[in-house]
């Protein structure tokens, strides 16, 4: 599948900022199932960009911008060729051992209610079946609702609601998997929807199974990932994989506006 991504992030500030420093995780990496054909990050003001790779192996870009700045728009534009085989994650640079992803963070803690929920789900014959069962159960339980901005919600808090964003669902699956001793991580990226809708970056989860390696599950669809997905960044939770982590020097408030267009350009 050839997928075109157009991702715009616009910050507006109520007061001019002296300077901005941002850490962007907006660049996918090549793997067996994903080839980046072209990819470009643009900024609508004078800024310096520096690329690096973080501790999780994600490709990062540091953005440095001197003020005064009233607004900044970051535009990501690119095309990726994807394949996908039942959610199998292959050929990805893995600087960290899977066991690290057993670590529980504040946003991926499994509450008693979540554990009860997991207990009611059929145990499954093996680990893989069990993960599929958890994935489907989460999909069935929550109405999925897109949220453009990260609200900082934890899995525990998200579980008390009736609807959940892909981000919340990813946290829930990660939390449940870790609670059962399965290394799991949060993934941010893009997904082409059948209905052509969707205006935010997507999020899903990966779990590690010894025999196979990392497997990707999308609880907002109740399925494994496939060729409709572009994988960008992984971390212990959404905070570590956030597309933009920013720091600004200046007064006032900021308004964030995100728009994502993902289009299938056809199979090749």
């Amino acid at each position: 599948m050839r997928i075109a991504v157009d991702h715009r992030t616009r910050y507006r500030f109520t007061e001019p900022q002296v300077r901005l420093v941002q850490l962007l995780r907006l660049t996918p990496q090549d793997s067996i199932d994903q080839t980046v054909v072209n990819w470009h990050i643009g900024v609508d003001c004078d800024a310096r960009l520096r690329e690096a790779v973080d501790g999780f192996g994600n490709r990062t870009t540091m953005l440095y911008c001197e003020g005064p700045i009233d607004a900044i728009e970051i535009t990501v534009h690119g095309e990726v060729l994807t394949a996908g085989d039942a959610g199998l994650v292959r050929g990805v640079i893995e600087p960290l051992p899977p066991a690290l992803f057993l670590r529980v963070t504040d946003r991926t803690r499994a509450s008693a209610a979540m554990r009860d929920f997991a207990q009611e789900i059929a145990p499954g014959e093996d680990r893989i079946a069990r993960l599929h069962a958890l994935n489907s159960a989460l999909h069935a339980r929550f109405a999925c609702r897109e949220e453009r901005n990260d609200t900082g919600l934890s899995a525990e808090a998200a579980f008390r609601r009736e609807h959940a964003s892909p981000r919340d669902l990813a946290h829930l699956l990660v939390a449940l998997a870790r609670a059962e001793g399965v290394p799991a991580r949060y993934v941010s990226g893009y997904h082409t929807r059948e209905d052509g809708e969707g205006h935010a970056p997507h999020a899903w989860a990966e779990a590690h199974v010894d025999a196979l390696g990392w497997l990707a599950f999308d609880p907002s669809r109740g399925l494994s990932s496939d060729e409709h997905y572009v994988r960008v960044a992984v971390a212990l939770d959404a905070a570590g994989a956030a597309p933009v982590a920013g720091s600004r020097l200046g007064e006032g408030r900021e308004c964030l506006d995100v728009d994502v267009q993902v289009a299938e350009l056809g199979r090749q």
Partner: peptide
């Protein structure tokens, strides 16, 4: 790996 003092960021 489970120790918070081991920093994956590093």
């Amino acid at each position: 790996l489970g120790n918070p003092q081991f920093r994956p960021e590093v």
